[in-house]
Every structure is written in C-alpha cells, then in structure tokens.
C-alpha cells in the first residue's frame, strides 16, 4: 500500500454545542492514530472499485460486479460496476432475499447457474432474470469470524461461472474485506471522537457549575454535585442542562448593570 498517512483534515470539524464554552479539544487525530493506520474513505472506495472491476474482468463473461456491505446502518451496495448490478442488489435488499444475502448470512459461496430455473430465491430470481441477469456468483466478505457483506458478479448468460471463478472471487473477496474493515474502523474512530468531544464539552459545563457553587459556599465538589443533581431531579432535566443554565445565569448577572438599590462606586 502506498497510500499517504491519514491527516487530521480528513476529519470534518465537529460542531461545538455551546458557544459560551471554550472550543472542545480535538481528539480526532489522536483517535485516528489509535485506530491504527486507517485509510481515508475516498481511498477505500477507490480501492474497492478497483477490486470489483478486477472481479468483473477476471471472471469471463461478467456483466457487472458489486460489493454488499452489511452493518448497523443496514444493507447497501458499494463500488457497483454498472447499473444492472446496482439494481439487482437493490432488489435483494427490497425482498430481503437473494444470493448475496445468503452468502453473507451463511458465510459460504453461493452460485446460481440459471436464475430462470433456480428455485432458492423465487422472487429475486424472477426479478433478476427480467433485468437480464442469468447467472450469479457471490462470495462472503469475512473479517476474522465475522461476515461483513458479500462480493458478487452477475452475468447475462446462464452457467457462466465454475470452480475457477469461485477461487478467483474468494481471493478478491479477502482483499475487499480488508478494505471494508479499514473503512469501518475509520468510521468507528470518528464516532468515538465525536462522542468524546461531546463528553468533554459537557464535563466542562459541569465543572464550571461546580466551581460557581463552590464560590457560593458549597462545602466540597461532592456537595456541589449533589446540589446540581438535586436540582436536576426536581426539574426533571439532566445535570448538564442545570449546569449550563447556572453558568449562563451567573454570566448574565455579572454583565447586568448594578441594581438601583445597590449603587456602585
């Protein structure tokens, strides 16, 4: 791999939630490093497209190729080499049946020799044959023990794929799985970074509110926190809201003109 190392500017700026608080610490770059050498999403997509087009050209007669990704956001296709492949995939997600979903679920290679005679996925086979897809080869994408999707090739002729194509697809699927796992760890790093940034902003607010209460005579930080928690319980709002409201109220008091019955010098 000759990709450049990831840069912090790959990560979009995280919006701050309270303009009154200092900007939160940017932990994104540190986390990206923690997640190991992570490729940028653009690099991953380009490399995935390379793998699918390689699959399309090394398996003779292939009409289209694509990768199915399954994660907590659902099922979707990536790097489809043409519209027919994309459409055939979309039908699988719509019907929740089809060779790639079976390859993903069972972690085994699935081959359809002829969609007009194969009875395993009747709805999908019928729809796919109308799109001009007659034979399919689909390989699961495995990361360690976990199945994260499938890579497939579609052909407009029946009986197009044999053991050699299965072998080629297994090799390419291993590469695609590595690329996908890489982009998932990048997303994970981004998610963690966003969560931590929010947590730090919240923590700042609670610490400031604790300071205000200490200055107003709270016996200890624990005592101040108990006051905040009690206020939160009584108003049914989170401690964070109480803390922010308290800090905001103090700021308003400090900037307000002195009251007439309490004249300044």
């Amino acid at each position: 791999m000759t990709d450049p190392p990831p840069h912090a500017d790959d990560v979009p700026p995280v919006p701050t939630h309270d303009p009154g608080l200092p900007p939160p610490v940017d932990v994104a770059s540190a986390l990206t490093q923690m997640a190991g050498l992570v490729l940028s999403r653009e690099t991953v997509d380009t490399a995935l497209e390379l793998v699918t087009s390689l699959a399309a050209t090394t398996t003779a007669g292939t009409l289209g190729a694509a990768v199915t990704v399954v994660d907590e956001h659902g099922k979707r296709s990536k790097a489809a080499s043409n519209a027919a492949a994309e459409r055939s995939d979309a039908l699988q997600y719509e019907f929740d049946e089809g060779p790639c979903l079976t390859a993903w679920r069972t972690q085994e290679v699935v081959r359809i020799d002829d969609t007009t005679t194969d009875g395993r996925w009747p709805r999908w086979n019928e729809a796919a044959s109308q799109l001009g897809v007659r034979s399919v080869l689909s390989t699961p994408l495995l990361m360690r023990e976990e199945s994260i999707g499938a890579m497939k090739v579609y052909c407009e002729r029946p009986h197009n794929y044999g053991p050699h194509d299965e072998h080629v697809m297994r090799l390419l699927a291993a590469q695609a799985a590595i690329l996908l796992a890489n982009s998932q760890s990048l997303q994970e790093a981004r998610r963690l970074s966003r969560q931590l940034t929010e947590a730090l902003a919240s923590r700042d607010a609670v610490a400031q509110a604790t300071g205000v209460l200490l200055a107003r005579g709270a016996a200890s930080a624990q005592d101040a926190f108990a006051t905040l928690a009690a206020a939160a319980r009584r108003t049914g709002s989170p401690v964070l809201d109480v803390a922010r409201a308290l800090v905001a109220a103090v700021a308003v008091r400090n900037t307000a003109p002195p009251a007439p019955d309490n004249p300044g010098p």
């Binding site: 006051t227 009584r234 108003t235 709002s237 109480v242 409201a245």
Partner: peptide
Amino acid sequence: GAQQLDRLIEGLLGDEAPDP
C-alpha cells in the same frame, strides 16, 4: 420545566440563604 429550573437557579444564586 424550564421555568422551574430558572426559579431554582435564582434560588441557588440568591444572596439570601436559599432553601430551594
């Protein structure tokens, strides 16, 4: 809820010993 919170905070910041 917000009004109650405002009152409570007024109490917390009040100069007289608050009893919120």
